[in-house]
């Protein structure tokens, strides 16, 4: 309850704090990145399925929303939801055969699937306008709207992790065999995690389309997928608040280095290696931020 209130307060601050146009853009981008990172976090951090293809779900969301709003004149709200649902449907279809794979094998399969989706979008000229991109999307993503969607999804996500489903996910991550002996249907658990994560990424993609008003298949390539997973590891596997903090931090850092864009990717690569070498458990480890605060208070007392 207290957590929900704090999240809502953060939301008000993000949405109402007077900012210039440039800073407003950063806030929108931060919300979008956080939504996508939350999606990957529930799959990689909480269920232990390592993915390198989730940018494809962002692409599906972005294209679905763009085509619905531009070509069929649908209002942005149902179109964004449809974007999330499209990602869910495709993820479910893909998940049936591939979720049997574990470890590096699923990771490599997800590269193949992600790239295949991107290539289909790129080659389906008549429907997606191909590699040159899809211009003229109504800029429906405003700061308030991005913040509201982010906060709503974050509240849902935190409650979901505290629910029975959250415990199921962690159990099948920590020891799949033990979890299935305890009576959890682990294949179904993994599927639920995949579908939820695809929904979050789809929504993030839809919002990105509305923010940029232009999308292109190459925006959702393997680099982007890697970035999503790297952000989750940076925040700490198994920590949702860590994911959000990590994603926000990376967005700000990358934005800070925009002027020296040549060195941006170099710094990003160095950051990845340095984190893995010196703090592989990420910012918060597998703890949520309030758990750490509580411990500190206890130790001080």
């Amino acid at each position: 309850m207290k957590r929900t209130l704090i999240l809502i307060l953060i939301g008000f601050a993000l949405a109402l704090w007077p900012l210039g146009g440039y800073q407003e853009g950063i806030v929108i981008l931060m919300c979008i990145n956080c939504i996508a990172a939350m999606g990957v976090s529930i799959l990689t951090g909480f269920t232990g399925i390592f993915t390198l293809g989730h940018a494809a779900y962002m692409a599906l969301g972005a294209y679905t929303t763009a085509i619905l709003t531009v070509r069929y004149g649908v209002h942005w709200f149902p179109a964004v939801i449809a974007g999330g649902l499209m990602a869910v449907i495709i993820a479910w279809l893909i998940g049936i055969p591939t979720l049997k794979l574990t470890g590096d094998y699923y990771a490599i399969a997800s590269i193949g699937l992600g790239e295949a989706i991107r290539l289909i979008l790129e080659n389906w000229q008549s429907f997606t306008r191909g590699a040159r991109g899809f211009p003229g999307i109504d800029p429906y993503t405003t700061r308030t709207m991005a913040v509201v969607i982010f906060i709503v999804l974050a509240i849902l996500m935190f409650n979901l992790l505290d629910s029975r489903l959250g415990r199921e996910l962690r159990a099948s991550r920590d020891d799949g065999t033990a979890a299935s002996l305890m009576g959890f249907n682990t294949p179904r658990t993994r599927m639920k995690a995949l579908v939820i994560s695809a929904f979050f990424c789809g929504i993030a993609g839809s919002l990105l389309g509305g923010y940029m008003s232009f999308i292109q298949p190459s925006m959702f390539d393997m680099m982007k997928s890697t970035e999503l997973t790297a952000v989750v590891v940076f925040g700490g596997l198994g920590s949702m608040s860590g994911t959000i903090l990590g994603s926000a931090a990376i967005t700000l850092i990358m934005e800070y280095f925009r002027d020296i864009s040549q060195y941006r990717m170099l710094i990003y690569g160095l950051l990845l290696v340095v984190i893995m070498v010196f703090r592989p458990e990420g910012l918060l480890g597998s703890h949520e931020v309030w758990e750490l605060l509580r411990w500190r208070r206890k130790n001080n007392a």
Partner: peptide, 12 residues
């Protein structure tokens, strides 16, 4: 962790 570090090295 090795996997992610190797991606970092590739980017570097």
């Amino acid at each position: 962790y090795l996997l992610i570090a190797s991606m970092g090295v590739n980017i570097i």
